[in-house]
Computed example of a mutant assay.
Amino acid sequence: MARAGLTAERLAEAAAELADAAGFEQVSLSALARRFEVSVPSLYSHVKSTHDLKTRVALLALAELADRGLVALAGRSGRDALTALGNVYRDYARAHPGRYAAARMPLDPATAAASAGLRHTEMIRAILRGYDVPEAEETHAVRVLGATFHGYVSLELAGGFDHSSPSSERSWSRAMDALDALLRHWPDE
């Protein structure tokens, strides 16, 4: 019999907390079983495997990020919207490094299609409409923004900017300036 109070959602939330505290790579069924003082087999009535558990954490993180992004973008356009969304990713990664890592987990196509991941692409496309980036060029621009946001955040989380000057805050602002300039002058094909 499953322990009272354990659900797939509760396990995903606990796994997300574990990811933030110990790292996404430390998320496992055995770690959760220890946390809840149950046997690993008792968790199988809620999740299929460690991979299933990690996928649930990824979906949770993608949804949390998308919800925050939508709030941040409301009423904004141009550089203001661009910076607001970039800051959502950056702030979330700082507050929830394990969940942020989970959000970068590759998902199978069916899971990805049903996830909040598509909302992220749509938020970026909404920003691009404010810059008049041609529809035929949007995918390229989405990739540039995603690579810049996630690349910068990943380097920052890894301590890549800890021992250099100027501050990473200043560099982040310059990165947003550069992206804004690029989007205002997006090259024709």
Rank of each mutant, 00 (worst) to 15 (best):
M176G: 02
T148L: 12
P187F: 09
A93S: 08
I124Q: 04
L59P: 08
M176W: 03
K54C: 06
L53T: 09
A2M: 14
S173L: 11
V57Y: 02
R143S: 13
A15C: 08
A101P: 01
A112I: 00
R79P: 05
R129I: 01
P106D: 04
F24I: 02
L145N: 03
L29A: 07
L11F: 11
G5F: 06
G98M: 01
L179D: 05
G98H: 03
T148Y: 03
M123L: 12
L85K: 06
V142R: 00
E135P: 00
G23E: 11
S49C: 09
L29C: 11
T50G: 14
R34S: 14
L65D: 02
S167H: 08
S168L: 05
A103F: 01
D180Q: 10
L182S: 13
L128F: 08
H51E: 15
D162M: 03
A63H: 12
V57G: 01
L85S: 04
H163F: 12
M1A: 15
V144S: 06
A15I: 06
L128G: 05
G69V: 07
G130S: 09
Q26G: 00
H163C: 04
G23A: 11
L128P: 06
M123K: 03
L59I: 05
A14I: 04
A101T: 10
L60N: 05
A8V: 04
F149G: 03
V71L: 14
R129C: 04
Q26E: 15
G69N: 06
H51A: 15
Y100I: 01
T111L: 09
D162C: 03
D67E: 15
A114F: 01
R94L: 13
R56L: 12
Y44C: 05
L118A: 13
E13K: 09
L59R: 10
L70C: 07
I127M: 09
R125L: 07
L128N: 07
F149C: 05
L53Q: 10
A81V: 09
A2H: 12
R143G: 13
E135M: 06
L18R: 05
E64M: 09
A181P: 00
T83N: 06
G98W: 01
S115W: 10
E135D: 13
G78K: 07
K48S: 14
